[in-house]
């Protein structure tokens, strides 16, 4: 099949970017979207052009490194998948596919389709851990955790940190990302001791990084590759409320 990729090219952070069209043939429906970009890059190399910079690593939807805006949707036309799980069979021969980097002030563009998501790391650094040193753990079964609580913690903990929630949010809010981590740790007994400080510090960092407000549009949970529920944000709000009073 043949597709036209309309791709955002930007040499570096300060440069002015623009869309460039690439008509690519010899594609097959089995190819993944990222493999099509690989294929395009090989063509570009042979034409002596600089390749399109885009991110990926595991290519099985778990590392969270890939992620671009494809035809107006974060991670492409399907819900709850990551970019690496998108295949060309989702497009029609002759289609034009518009590919843009994540857009958010807190995710500045590094080059072409690559953005800097280190803001997420800094949110994590501000409390997304249990302050226990290696070697100090009690016997694992000494901490009993009900199945329902463990399951809910796991639902939230599944976040892969890809940034699709921020990308798709009209306000570039990082509420879903932050909430998922807070709820994972704060709902478990191990995380309770630092619960208030954690929610205060992490949400403060979220503000400092320049993310916007949550308007509960719900777009984030639709684009989230792990389908993390937006209810997590409401739960975080409750936890923050409590922390602000008690913490």
């Amino acid at each position: 099949m043949q597709l036209t990729f309309r791709i955002w090219r930007q040499e570096q952070a300060q440069a002015k970017g623009s869309f460039k069209d690439y008509k690519v043939g010899e594609l097959t429906e089995d190819m993944s979207f990222l493999e099509a970009l690989d294929h395009l890059n090989e063509i570009l190399v042979l034409q002596d052009e600089s390749v399109i910079a885009f991110e990926y690593d595991c290519r099985e939807g778990i590392c969270g490194q890939c992620g671009v805006f494809i035809n107006g949707r974060a991670h492409g036309p399907h819900s709850n998948i990551s970019t690496c799980q998108l295949h060309l069979r989702s497009f029609k021969d002759g289609d034009t596919i518009v590919v843009e980097p994540w857009r958010a002030k807190a995710f500045p563009i590094i080059k072409d389709l690559i953005v800097d998501r280190s803001a997420f790391d800094r949110i994590i650094e501000n409390g997304a851990y249990i302050s226990a040193k290696t070697g100090t753990a009690p016997e694992a079964n000494a901490i009993l955790i009900g199945k329902a609580i463990a399951d809910r913690a796991m639902d939230a903990a599944a976040c892969i940190g890809c940034g699709a929630c921020v990308a798709t949010c009209k306000n570039s809010s990082a509420a879903l990302f932050t909430a998922a981590k807070i709820n994972h740790l704060n709902s478990l007994p191990q995380g309770k001791l630092e619960a208030h400080q954690r929610v205060l510090d992490m949400t403060t960092q979220m503000e400092v990084e320049g993310f916007g407000h949550c308007s509960f549009t719900g777009a984030c949970e639709v684009e989230c590759p792990e389908g993390i529920s937006i209810t997590n944000i409401a739960e975080m709000n409750a936890r923050l409320f409590k922390a602000q009073i008690l913490g």
Partner: peptide, 30 residues
């Protein structure tokens, strides 16, 4: 105030954005 902050948080809009596929129109246009 919220709108100003939100606009600052997303200074560049997408060239193509199909918000209707992931959210209600009203929620995007409050």
């Amino acid at each position: 105030v919220i709108t100003i902050r939100n606009k600052q948080a997303k200074p560049v809009k997408y060239a193509v954005n199909h918000t209707q596929e992931n959210s209600r129109w009203a929620s995007q246009n409050m």
